[in-house]
């Protein structure tokens, strides 16, 4: 595909920003495949609005906003797009998981363990750095909803993140250490 049937600038925009949008989608969904789906669906909408966006808008901001709203709406359909576990869960023994997975995999698994609405709020709040009011306006919900979703997400993830931080600070006294990149 050369992009010959696309309006001026669109193919260049997609080619240059697609990797970043895929990574953003991965954060919003906790999964690379779903994240790429999300990015492509959003880019279809960007295509439709391209004439307006290309001339006087910010196509990347528009695309990201579409992705966020789609991910938020997907949260209404709990688990339907969740990624099945690659392996049966085992007895939880803190630390063991890190022997076989690197930090990135652990963080993505932790993201996937969150309900979609909590994941979206977490990414907007702590990755994109938006305020609670900005997130509420973006998602069309109350700041109370944003606070509760963020709080629950943090409560769930705190243990994971704290474990990773602890591992970064030094090797464990017993067993193999984690593989950190």
């Amino acid at each position: 595909m050369s992009g010959t049937d696309t309006p001026p600038g669109f193919a260049e925009f997609v080619s240059s920003r697609y990797p970043a949008l895929t990574r953003y989608g991965t954060l919003l969904t906790g999964d690379r495949g779903h994240g790429e789906d999300l990015a492509q669906e959003a880019l279809v909408k960007t295509f439709r609005a391209w004439r307006r966006l290309h001339e006087q808008g910010d196509p990347e901001a528009y695309t990201r906003r579409v992705m966020v709203r789609a991910a938020w709406r997907a949260g209404r359909r709990l688990w339907r797009r969740e990624v099945p576990a690659a392996a049966p869960p085992e007895r939880p023994t803190p630390g063991d998981a890190y022997d076989e997975h690197d930090t990135a995999a652990v963080v993505l698994a932790a993201l996937r363990s969150l309900p979609a609405s909590q994941r979206v709020v977490l990414v907007l709040r702590y990755w994109a750095g938006l305020s609670e009011q900005e997130i509420a306006a973006e998602l069309g919900c109350s700041t109370g909803t944003v606070k509760s979703r963020a709080s629950r997400a943090m409560a769930t993830l705190r243990q994971t993140f704290t474990s990773i931080e602890a591992m970064k600070e030094g090797p464990r006294p017993y067993g193999r250490g984690p593989r950190l990149r």
Partner: peptide, 16 residues
């Protein structure tokens, strides 16, 4: 958290 999230997707490359 931001650093961890950044790290989590730093190696992600599109499949397409």
């Amino acid at each position: 958290i931001r650093e961890l999230l950044d790290h989590a997707v730093a190696g992600i490359e599109p499949g397409t």
